[in-house]
């Protein structure tokens, strides 16, 4: 507990970190309370292509849906996918990373699989698979998890390899502690900071990948994520030559950008805390 408070105190000093957290809280709140915050049902149709006015603050799209409501509900879809995927792939990656760091033979085989995953370019592969599957949220989530865990597993493993031979682990082993007890009690707590950073980084990758796939038209057409809104805006013929881009294309794009920015700031500040060398204090 004391460690957490000290950690938070340190984090408070990081300006980008606080900014990132602020933006994230804003989007989280709008995602959680979407039904209360959004003025309309995002699927309800009104007069199409209305310019922003007092009824529709950001106008309506080509089939008459309120864009502001779409954005607010979109934060739900985008953030849910991002954090669900990153949580599950971090759990899988951590478990496999711990085991493969601790048991050498298993680690060897697992790391060959990880090598394969990391060597194959992720994005084109995901695009092709999704194009063959039916586009649905759960298909996307499944595929992102499938390609998400190897990174975490690799990072956790290399950390476990260095922790495994620390004196206190040897001591625990000599006292007769079983492997799983050592892993859970002595090694896992030491990799928690790494896991958190990895969680944030992975969430960023997923947001980017999901919005990218949606932009290419491979998203779930029934779930409006920010990327999907952007996709429909891009497909609209006169988007580049009329005024409508200002309220149809710009807001979802900025939502994606600010989410990525906030995750980037948060992960950077956390990494700085974990690795003091990055803080720019010269070592003597």
């Amino acid at each position: 507990m004391r460690r957490i408070i000290a950690f938070l105190k340190e984090y408070r000093n990081s300006m980008p970190g606080l900014m990132g957290l602020g933006i994230m809280v804003f989007f989280m709140v709008s995602a959680i309370f979407a039904p209360f915050v959004a003025p309309y049902d995002p699927h309800q149709m009104y007069k199409p292509l209305e310019h922003p006015n007092s009824d529709h603050l950001l106008g309506t799209n080509d089939i008459g849906q309120d864009i502001l409501s779409e954005l607010i509900y979109g934060s739900r879809v985008s953030l849910f996918i991002a954090f669900f995927v990153s949580a599950v792939s971090c759990i899988i990656g951590t478990a496999l990373g711990l085991l493969s760091g601790y048991y050498e033979r298993m680690g060897f085989f697992l790391m060959r699989i990880v090598d394969g995953f990391l060597a194959i370019p992720r994005l084109p592969l995901i695009i092709v698979i999704v194009a063959f599957l039916r586009p649905s949220i759960w298909n996307l989530i499944f595929i992102f998890i499938l390609f998400g865990w190897p990174f975490t597993a690799r990072i956790i493993r290399s950390e476990v390899l260095s922790l495994r031979n620390r004196p206190y682990v040897d001591a625990a082993r000599m006292l007769g502690a079983r492997d799983f007890y050592i892993l859970g009690r002595h090694i896992l707590p030491n990799v928690v900071p790494l896991i958190i950073v990895q969680l944030i980084i992975e969430a960023r990758h997923v947001i980017l990948a999901e919005s990218g796939l949606s932009f290419l038209g491979l998203g779930d057409p029934t779930a409006k994520s920010w990327g999907m809104i952007l996709h429909y805006a891009f497909e609209y013929p006169t988007i580049f030559i009329s005024e409508i881009w200002k309220w149809w294309m710009l807001p979802p794009g900025l939502c994606i950008t600010f989410t990525i920015l906030s995750l980037m700031f948060i992960s950077y500040s956390l990494e700085e805390l974990i690795n003091p060398r990055l803080r720019g204090v010269t070592r003597v």
Binding site: P16, S211, F215, F234, L250, T257, I260, F265
Partner: peptide
């Protein structure tokens, strides 16, 4: 520099491209 570079590279390429076009 850090804030600037992190900020501009937060733009997804497709969104940045659309902004440049407009």
């Amino acid at each position: 520099l850090l804030t600037f570079v992190l900020s501009i590279s937060s733009f997804p390429s497709f969104f940045l491209g659309m902004l440049f076009i407009i």
